[in-house]
Simulated scan of single mutants.
Amino acid sequence: MSDPAGYQPLAGKVAVVTGAAGAIGSATARKLAERGARVIGVDHPSADGGPVETARWPRRIHPAARRRDRRSRVCGYVEKSLALGSRIDIFFNNAGIEGTQASIQDYPTDEFVRVFNVNVLGVFLGMKYVLPLMQAQKSGSIINTSSIAGLIGAANMSSYIISKHAVLGLTRTASLEAAPFGVRVNSVHPGFIESRMLTDIVHNLGVPGAEALVPAVPLGRLGTIDDIAIAVAFLASDESSYVTGHSLLVDRGKTVG
């Protein structure tokens, strides 16, 4: 889905995207770059570099692999991003994992903690270190990736459901704390998006395939990664300057259907 020629609402802005090698991360990085932003992609050193190469981003960085604690890794990528871009105007706080699918009584505790550390602690720490930079410059937009799982329940997905509910709570709290400084914080909530994550989830839950979910979607199709990228680009831009603390559903009516 291409933009009109010359459409550059993010020109001059520096964007940091975490989970940048994943489906939604790479699509959003490309969209932000198309709209004029200088994009810095952040992902794990083992992540596939293919999407990064095709996106033609100015920079890609990894959290310092030798730093064992998550706080140091997040602080490290924020410092590197600031050194590369001199400022951070847009922060797509997107990195996340789905975890194992199992009932609560069978769910491995170590796996629950792993999902929490990536999906909740990672989002919290990202804002902890990016918010002061944006508050000092009196501007900025943070978009946290939650999910429709942050608004509804689902059996056998306790860690993912809880983590995405937590992202929504963090977003609402941060939006109130950041508002006096001219910084906006919103969340995006993807529905059934064609991606590796959705394929793995439906397989592990015993669903024959992602297309089997289409009848549950009122508007009648699975979402695309570009659907999410466009939503994030809107929240990143000054076109949404009066929007903060908002949970933007991109689910073609699933949560109300």
Rank of each mutant, 00 (worst) to 15 (best):
V16D: 06
S187L: 04
R35V: 06
G150D: 03
P208Q: 07
R114A: 14
D106L: 04
S187V: 00
Y160S: 06
V256P: 01
S147T: 04
D69I: 03
A23E: 13
I40C: 07
A83T: 15
L170K: 08
V217D: 04
D200E: 13
L125F: 03
A229L: 08
E111W: 03
G220F: 01
Q105M: 12
S241K: 15
I228P: 03
A149P: 01
S237C: 12
I61A: 10
L84V: 08
G50T: 15
D48W: 07
G253Q: 02
G6V: 01
V123A: 15
G36V: 05
V185L: 01
F92G: 07
Y160T: 04
V188L: 11
G220S: 04
I225Q: 14
N186F: 00
R38E: 10
V52P: 00
G49Y: 09
G253M: 02
L219A: 12
V39E: 05
G206C: 09
V39F: 04
L84R: 09
V207K: 08
G223C: 02
M197T: 09
S26M: 02
I152R: 14
N204E: 15
K31M: 13
V214D: 03
F124A: 09
G206T: 11
A15W: 05
D89G: 04
F91P: 00
A229C: 08
S139G: 12
G41L: 11
I225M: 10
E53D: 14
S158R: 01
V214A: 07
R73N: 06
G6H: 07
Q135G: 04
V207I: 15
R60K: 15
R87A: 14
P51C: 06
